[in-house]
Amino acid sequence: MIKVQTKWLERAQRIQAIAQAGLAFSKDVYDRERYEELMKLSAEMMVDYSQTDIEVITDLWKRESGYPTPKADVRGAVFRENQILLVREKHDELWSLPGGFCEIGLSPAENVVKEIKEESGYDTEPSRLLAVLDSHKHSHPPQPYHYYKIFIA
């Protein structure tokens, strides 16, 4: 469920996604101009509500092309003797399950094995999928993209 205070973010993301898809598939010069205008409006909405520089937002949007889809993030739940492995996140120094964004060419299981090794030094073997969560269906801090978080034991 989307909280009222983040409806602006959902709308800005949706406008950006429509513009991105339109730019990816439209051949008509006038339609492309309209999609560029939508892209600009979505960036302005993000700036107005997030107090982020317009250059940062437009740079995020420029990196995206093709049909927009949610990004995938994997997390590994490593248990041993009734304890769970946690690592410190570099960006905020808080404790978290090891993991990160999925890389092209690797399955979610291969990604989580790689992330656990990089972040903790442990070699692991995935055993089962625990959950797939949609960031838009849970309370998360506002983010510019839509994510699916995949938890693997």
Rank of each mutant, 00 (worst) to 15 (best):
residue 41 L to Y: 14
residue 27 K to P: 02
residue 131 A to R: 14
residue 13 Q to N: 06
residue 145 Y to R: 06
residue 94 L to W: 13
residue 29 V to M: 12
residue 104 I to K: 15
residue 30 Y to K: 04
residue 40 K to R: 07
residue 142 P to I: 02
residue 59 D to W: 11
residue 112 V to H: 07
residue 125 E to W: 07
residue 106 L to R: 13
residue 17 A to T: 00
residue 11 R to N: 01
residue 144 P to I: 02
residue 38 L to C: 05
residue 77 A to T: 12
residue 31 D to T: 03
residue 24 A to M: 08
residue 138 H to M: 12
residue 94 L to D: 08
residue 22 G to M: 06
residue 41 L to H: 10
residue 31 D to K: 11
residue 84 I to W: 15
residue 64 E to K: 15
residue 85 L to A: 09
residue 107 S to P: 10
residue 2 I to A: 13
residue 138 H to E: 10
residue 4 V to G: 05
residue 43 A to H: 11
residue 61 W to G: 04
residue 133 L to R: 15
residue 16 Q to C: 09
residue 130 L to G: 10
residue 64 E to A: 11
residue 142 P to E: 02
residue 39 M to Q: 06
residue 73 D to N: 13
residue 57 I to R: 03
residue 64 E to R: 15
residue 6 T to P: 01
residue 122 Y to D: 08
residue 127 S to W: 15
residue 7 K to F: 14
residue 81 E to N: 15
residue 71 K to T: 00
residue 83 Q to D: 10
residue 75 R to T: 01
residue 69 T to Y: 14
residue 121 G to E: 04
residue 109 A to V: 05
residue 47 V to D: 03
residue 117 K to T: 00
residue 19 A to D: 04
residue 100 G to A: 01
residue 147 Y to D: 06
residue 102 C to L: 12
residue 151 F to P: 01
residue 13 Q to M: 04
residue 123 D to I: 00
residue 91 H to E: 03
residue 120 S to A: 11
residue 2 I to F: 14
residue 73 D to K: 13
residue 137 K to C: 00
residue 74 V to I: 07
residue 105 G to S: 08
residue 78 V to F: 13
residue 42 S to T: 06
residue 153 A to Y: 12
residue 63 R to L: 02
residue 30 Y to S: 01
residue 28 D to F: 05
residue 39 M to T: 00
residue 58 T to Q: 14
residue 27 K to E: 12
residue 8 W to L: 02
residue 43 A to T: 02
residue 29 V to S: 05
residue 144 P to G: 08
residue 94 L to F: 12
residue 67 Y to Q: 08
residue 66 G to F: 10
residue 142 P to L: 02
residue 80 R to K: 07
residue 68 P to K: 03
residue 51 Q to E: 13
residue 64 E to I: 08
residue 44 E to R: 09
residue 42 S to I: 04
residue 133 L to H: 12
residue 37 E to W: 14
residue 112 V to Q: 05
residue 34 R to D: 07
residue 53 D to V: 03
residue 101 F to D: 11
residue 134 D to I: 01
residue 19 A to F: 11
residue 47 V to S: 07
residue 50 S to H: 05
residue 153 A to E: 15
residue 15 I to E: 10
residue 17 A to R: 06
residue 82 N to E: 09
residue 58 T to K: 15
residue 58 T to D: 06
residue 16 Q to Y: 13
residue 4 V to R: 14
residue 14 R to D: 09
residue 78 V to H: 10
residue 85 L to H: 14
residue 31 D to Q: 11
residue 30 Y to I: 00
residue 43 A to S: 08
residue 40 K to S: 01
residue 147 Y to V: 01
residue 144 P to T: 01
residue 26 S to D: 13
residue 38 L to M: 15
residue 23 L to D: 09
residue 46 M to D: 02
residue 102 C to R: 09
residue 126 P to L: 11
residue 39 M to E: 06
residue 69 T to C: 03
residue 144 P to Y: 15
residue 85 L to W: 15
residue 98 P to R: 07
residue 103 E to R: 15
residue 75 R to M: 03
residue 22 G to H: 05
residue 40 K to I: 00
residue 102 C to I: 06
residue 58 T to R: 15
residue 133 L to T: 05
residue 127 S to R: 14
residue 39 M to Y: 07
residue 44 E to H: 03
residue 118 E to P: 01
residue 110 E to N: 12
residue 116 I to L: 08
residue 13 Q to H: 07
residue 82 N to S: 05
residue 71 K to H: 05
residue 127 S to F: 13
residue 84 I to G: 07
